[in-house]
Write a protein that binds this DNA or RNA. Structure first.
Length: 196
DNA sequence: CGGAAGATCCTCT
DNA sequence: GAGGATCTTCCGG
């Protein structure tokens, strides 16, 4: 069972908490984030699926050093990195140690359900945020939020008690694909995919 | 400067 | 389960 005894739960994370929690190995942060509540301008819910990316990882955007696109991944711990995926979708990451980040892959849509349903053109809660691109569409996340801190609007992040997590290989990558750096809330119906 | 690959999603079969 | 949409990024030449 993961432990994150850095502050009591639930805590709405402010600057001190962000540094304490995110200035760590992205793999640990990815695991500990499961269950944390993400609120983006009144929409969101508990995070149920994450993936870790590190600079020593060929699958990471930072593997070959800083570029224009990935510069936010070298920003302060607890800021966000937003990038375009396949020319169509946006993906949201939380920055950890320099050059590392956690991809937010899915959450349980709880707050602002009607707004998210309208943005996604879907009614089924299981279809709203069950994937990194879907999640950004539902929460209206785009490049304009790149680099912002998680304790500033439109973001708010609230901690939660450690959850029982499932672990497995990351999704949709070809390099370093065997590393088990995907984490999920065990048994959640809001995952992008089941765990093996 | 060209081109291939890409941390995805939707539709159709 | 396969294939297409769609376009930015980055690397090689």
């Amino acid at each position: 069972m993961p432990e994150s005894p850095y502050f009591p739960h639930p805590t709405r994370l402010t600057d001190d908490h962000l540094k304490i929690f995110f200035e760590r190995d992205a793999v640990l942060v990815a695991r500990d984030l499961i269950g944390f509540d993400l609120n983006v301008a009144g929409c969101g819910g508990p995070i149920v699926e994450t993936e870790a990316y590190r600079p020593d990882d060929p699958a990471s955007h930072t593997f070959r050093g800083p570029t224009q696109r990935n510069r936010a991944m070298f920003g302060p711990p607890g800021s966000v990195y937003v990038y375009r995926s396949y020319g169509i979708h946006w993906c949201l990451n939380f920055v950890c140690l320099p050059g590392s980040a956690v991809l937010i892959r899915a959450l349980e849509p709880r707050l602002g359900l009607a707004t998210m349903q309208a943005r996604r053109n879907s009614i089924d809660p299981r279809q709203l945020c069950s994937g990194p691109g879907k999640l950004c569409a539902a929460l209206d996340i785009a490049i304009g939020l790149d680099g912002l801190l998680l304790d500033t609007p439109p973001f708010a992040l609230t901690s939660a008690e450690p959850a029982t997590t499932a672990t497995g290989p990351r999704i949709g990558i070809t390099k370093n694909a065997e590393m088990p750096w995907r984490f999920g809330l065990a048994g959640s119906p809001y995952l992008s995919r089941r765990f093996p």
